[in-house]
Nucleic acid binder design. Structure first.
Lengths: 261, 261
DNA sequence: CCTTGAAGTTCCATTTAATGGAACTTGAGT
DNA sequence: ACTCAAGTTCCATTAAATGGAACTTCAAGG
């Protein structure tokens, strides 16, 4: 195996709960000989992928990675546009907003706007949640034809909560509704008491697709405010879809949404 | 040479003006044989360091790099604390604020808060400016003893503007003042008409040091507001210094600052 | 529809780096 | 000063990277 793949394995060791690694961490996590771990970390630091923390034996991601990672947003400028829309809505209503992408059957948040209210939804960028059991996930899955959704779940799935779809057929039913209404909604799925509204939009020239989501405690949002959020998300996403000439975009259908539960 | 160093060379090709690269870009930029360029980009994509844009031959940084790069802020939690302080001040007064780190004789901005005013200073994260000719740079350099500053500039430097120090002795004079007053100030240095105020703080346990900076058009800030910014920066940084037990921190000395030009 | 050339990929023998076991060094705690 | 865990260096072996050249792809122009 190439040293490149080992280096990437090291990068994957970092997470929101592990901000730095040592030689023994690598031996434990990756099962590599400590001679390799030692040299690999040093090589990665010498090349500028990692930094040593103070003058300890701990290594963390470098400034270079921070900068290159930051460019992802601009490279995938769709994310930046979506982030602007979500940021505006989040600022206005004070609830948490975020932008996510789909990787296979999982959803990863790429940008977040924390929200001002005392009771707020806290998202952690980089964490993965299942696509079928979240509003962001279903907003994105609704862009695929049914057979491609089925192909994503050859072995089906098991629902993590009562309000999530229980099987692929139920999921496809929910996706059909998302396509009609132009937005996806979740309630008590990932977190009890939390409600989320999402719309998805894509850029055909790059193949990128993102979900714009607003998330809030179910108890704090009145029907009128919910509709206002849906409208803002829908309009923002429609603006992006017009820019990118996204033909798969499902525009908002408020006539249906107003009768939604 | 290790493939690791080639891979890092590729990452360094990305910048705010180059969001994606092709095989020929690498041949031109790095002077490598195109066989290598082709395999290297493919290997980096297969390992998850890069993504292909749509199904074109263009490569951009991956989501993985975005996530790992994002962790830098938390790993170096000093940055996060400094960012919170600068964000508060920036929100309050509406001028651009940012947090920077020093790499040798250069300063790199790591986080930025754009500011609301029509006439605002626009900072670009990741761009490098000379340390001696900026308020952030001098705030950070003032944390070093004079001999270490001299060691950074064995060949001296040439001043890029009239208000920047012209030689190392002049720089040391400015640094002495920064240590006395507890903040650094610049005027018309990097950009004409722009004034900036900076303080620096460090974390002895990690060895990290950051500068907190507020930047604004010289014409728009009255003496009273300038003092208010200095006070906010100084208090915020003092709070961080207390948390990290930063012994090199230079506290604000308003008695001197009030008589400053 | 065929030609052309730029861009990218694959092939191959050669060169170079990565590997893992073991011996060695370092450093914190007793 | 001793001990043990953590980290580093050494070495022959094994595996991967290299770069030149041949090959493929693709879009534009005749």
């Amino acid at each position: 195996m190439s040293i490149l793949s080992s280096a990437v394995d090291v990068l994957r060791c970092f997470s929101s709960t592990r901000h730095d690694v040592t030689v023994t961490d690598l031996v434990t996590l990756l099962g590599m000989p400590k001679s390799n771990a030692s040299r690999l970390l040093r090589a990665m630091r010498d090349e500028g992928l990692l930094e040593t923390v103070g003058d300890s034996k701990r290594y963390r991601p470098s400034l270079l990675l921070n900068q290159v990672g930051h460019l992802y947003r601009f490279a995938a400028s769709l994310i930046d546009r979506a982030d602007a829309v979500v940021g505006n809505i989040s600022d206005r209503i004070g609830h948490t907003g975020y932008v996510s992408v789909r990787r296979g059957t999982e959803i990863v948040a790429v940008t977040a706007h924390p929200g001002r209210h005392a009771l707020r939804v806290v998202t952690s960028i980089g964490d993965r949640i299942p696509a079928f059991a979240s509003s962001t996930g279903r907003a994105l899955l609704a862009r695929l034809p049914d057979d491609e959704v089925r192909a994503l779940y050859p072995a089906g799935f098991s629902a993590p909560s009562e309000t999530a779809p229980r099987n692929v057929d139920e999921l496809l039913g929910r996706l059909a509704r998302v396509r009609d209404e132009g937005f996806a909604e979740s309630r008590d799925e990932a977190v009890r008491g939390v409600r989320a509204l999402s719309v998805a939009v894509g850029d055909p020239t790059t193949g990128d697709e993102v979900a714009l989501c607003l998330s809030f405690p179910a108890a704090t949002v009145e029907p009128a405010e919910r509709l206002s959020i849906i409208r803002s998300l829908g309009e923002g996403a429609a603006g992006i879809a017009a820019l990118t000439q996204d033909k798969r975009f499902h525009p908002l259908n408020l006539a249906i949404a107003e009768t939604a539960p």
